[in-house]
């Protein structure tokens, strides 16, 4: 199935016309980022991967979870129900689409035993109204390493619909999920059964000397955790949250109250394990009191905790943490060390 570029435009304009939220790569302040578009022409097509992942549209950086009024001897409390808008992410990359499995596994961890207690519906409800239309990458940049962590520039995991560019500049359409099939059915008029040759997809090189299986196995060894090399690899780390906030799978958050006078909100805000205050006890004790311990935690989370607890990949090889790091701390170097 093929959707012509012009029909894709009609489709997008129709979706917007119906009041739906269409998220796509746009150019802002010299950066390509996922954002809500007002028209098809807002979309930037010349990009490898936007600077943010689209996780912020499923798990916003800041959101209210409860509101209250504080009276003299009473409190009026109300849970927030997120305002949902049907959302279409157009132009996701396969790595980002795959990352939603990681987020979902954390936000539903324990829900099998007790959904009323362990299911984060703020995430799940947003996911429930979101359709992911991924566009396979034609090529990566030097920081892309999806093929090293078991994905490819055309992996369907996590996408509802996978689009691949044709030599004529149109897109071959492959529905992946039931949701994707229903979507394609709904918009069938814009999609033809023609065939067109696909543009060639250039896979990022699989990095020799990196073996995620081996990394996981070595991280299971408590002694590897104590290896002094961690101190060396993370010495230059400045402890900012650029990597975690750019990462499509990082999910940590804080819960804070913000009140003015007698009313306020409880909010759920992104937080980062790289911050010194993340684990600081009120007593002053901090289990991860130096930066290398915090950096090691992030790495352990991606390559050991996720795979063993959530049976999903904690790192999708999008390369954002490498691109964004002010001190060029390259996660692949550590992956290589642990593959030895």
């Amino acid at each position: 199935m093929i959707i012509k570029r012009n029909d894709l435009k009609r489709l997008v304009e129709d979706l917007i016309g119906q009041g739906k939220r269409v998220i796509a790569p746009i150019m802002r302040m010299g950066l390509v980022e996922y954002g809500e578009i007002g028209s098809f022409d807002d979309i930037t097509w010349d990009y490898i991967n936007p600077r943010n992942s689209f996780k912020e549209f499923l798990f916003p950086q800041t959101e209210a979870i409860a509101r209250y009024r504080i009276g003299k001897k009473d409190v009026e409390l109300e849970g927030v129900i997120p305002e949902l808008r049907e959302t279409i992410v157009l132009g996701s990359r396969p790595c980002d689409a795959a990352s939603t499995a990681s987020l979902r596994s954390v936000f539903t961890w324990g829900a099998e035993e007790d959904p009323s207690r362990f299911r984060d519906d703020f995430y799940l409800m947003r996911e429930g109204v979101t359709t992911v239309m991924t566009i396979a990458c034609l090529k990566g940049d030097e920081d892309c390493f999806c093929t090293t962590v078991g994905l490819t520039p055309e992996s369907p995991e996590g996408s509802d619909i996978l689009l691949k560019e044709t030599v004529r500049g149109n897109f071959a359409v492959t529905p992946v999920t039931e949701r994707g099939k229903a979507f394609v059915e709904e918009w069938r008029d814009y999609i033809t059964d023609e065939r067109e040759d696909l543009k060639e997809i250039e896979y990022p090189e699989v990095l020799e000397g990196i073996d995620t299986g081996k990394i996981g196995a070595r991280l299971s060894d408590v002694d590897v955790f104590d290896d002094p090399v961690w101190q060396e690899v993370a010495r230059k780390c400045i402890g900012c949250g650029a990597c975690t906030f750019s990462c499509p799978t990082c999910h940590c958050f804080d819960i804070v109250d913000e009140a003015t006078g007698y009313e306020g909100e409880r909010r759920k805000n992104w937080d980062a394990c790289q911050f010194e205050y993340f684990t600081l006890h009120a007593s002053g004790h901090n289990p991860r009191d130096t930066q290398f311990k915090r950096w090691r935690n992030r790495f352990l989370c991606k390559f050991h905790i996720y795979p063993t607890k959530f049976t999903s990949t904690g790192c999708v090889g999008c390369g954002r943490c490498i691109r964004v790091c002010p001190v060029a701390l390259d996660i692949r170097e550590v992956m290589e060390w642990l593959s030895r």
Partner: peptide
């Protein structure tokens, strides 16, 4: 317009 885009990663402070 600029500050609204701040993601509070504190890279400015940390660097």
């Amino acid at each position: 317009e600029h500050f609204e885009r701040c993601i509070r990663c504190y890279a400015c402070r940390q660097i």
